[in-house]
């Protein structure tokens, strides 16, 4: 179980959110830009200190302003992935991955080989981050966070800096991650597609407040489009290619997708 509550004034903006998420699924923080989603993540990660906040991950209380509890970000065991991968430019991919791995204490639940296999980054280990494509960079960033053995993974718009093709690719890996490791994740996005594809629980945030929460299917409007299948799980709708898991129509076939 993840419990988060934060109240904070940032200039003219007031953040006042409270929500809970499932212990081993993806909680999507959904809302327009500037709604306070990233500010909420910063409170969870401990990067921002809210005047009034509660952050509980599983059994661990990380922030409780009432009880004067504040665990430093480096001791939170929370992995963070941003839209810019923030890989260390002076280290190889392997050494980036090892950065968090080496600093863990105790038992490692997520294996080195397993994580590398799920993210398909084995062939990149000797490369320098600057020689990676955008999608590869994000996968390495996710791997680096994962290998630090986090109790919770925060993903702050991890694919919004990528083009449509790369986006589908990285989303596939995030979905695989969810299947394989059963790790709770907080996923920030303003994309309905991503929210539907990955979310188990959706928290809608607008103007710094939670305006509703529930299952993604219940929280997002039903839509239907007609498109053209372009590959397994990929449908072209107009100019855009979207990921639709389960589509296996031959390329070129006209498909109707409703959700």
């Amino acid at each position: 179980m993840i419990r988060v509550a934060a109240r904070q004034r940032l200039g003219g903006f007031a953040l006042d959110v409270a929500f809970e998420g499932p212990p081993d699924g993806v909680t999507v923080l959904f809302g327009p830009s500037g709604a306070g989603k990233s500010a909420t993540l910063a409170v969870v990660a401990g990067i921002a200190r809210a005047a009034d906040a509660l952050v509980v991950v599983g059994e661990r209380v990380l922030t409780d302003t009432g009880a004067r509890v504040f665990v430093l970000p480096e001791r939170r065991r929370i992995g963070v992935v941003h839209q810019d991968a923030r890989l260390f430019p002076h280290l190889s991919v392997a050494r980036n991955l090892r950065y968090g791995w080496r600093r863990t204490t105790g038992e490692r639940r997520i294996g080195w080989d397993e994580a590398i296999e799920v993210l398909a980054i084995g062939h990149l280990l000797d490369r320098s981050p600057r020689d990676l494509s955008g999608g590869e960079r994000q996968r390495v960033a996710i791997g680096r966070a994962l290998l630090s053995q986090p109790d919770l993974l925060l993903l702050d718009e991890p694919v919004s800096a990528l083009d449509a093709g790369r986006r589908a690719e990285v989303l596939r890996f995030v979905a695989a991650l969810k299947q394989r490791f059963g790790l709770p994740m907080l996923y920030v996005t303003h994309s309905e597609d991503e929210a539907r594809l990955l979310g188990d629980h959706l928290v809608r945030i607008e103007d710094g407040r939670v305006v509703g929460q529930g299952s993604p299917a219940a929280m997002l409007p039903v839509r239907q489009v007609v498109g053209e299948a372009v590959g397994p799980g990929m449908v072209r709708v107009g100019e855009a290619v979207i990921a639709v898991p389960g589509v296996d129509a031959p390329s070129g076939a006209v498909v109707r997708v409703s959700w």
């Binding site: 992995g79 963070v80 923030r86 260390f88 950065y99 968090g100 600093r103 966070a145 630090s148």
Partner: peptide, 13 residues
């Protein structure tokens, strides 16, 4: 870049 330091921090440094 301070964001790289932030990344190192979240990785336990």
């Amino acid at each position: 870049d301070l964001r790289l330091e932030e990344a190192a921090r979240s990785l336990g440094a």
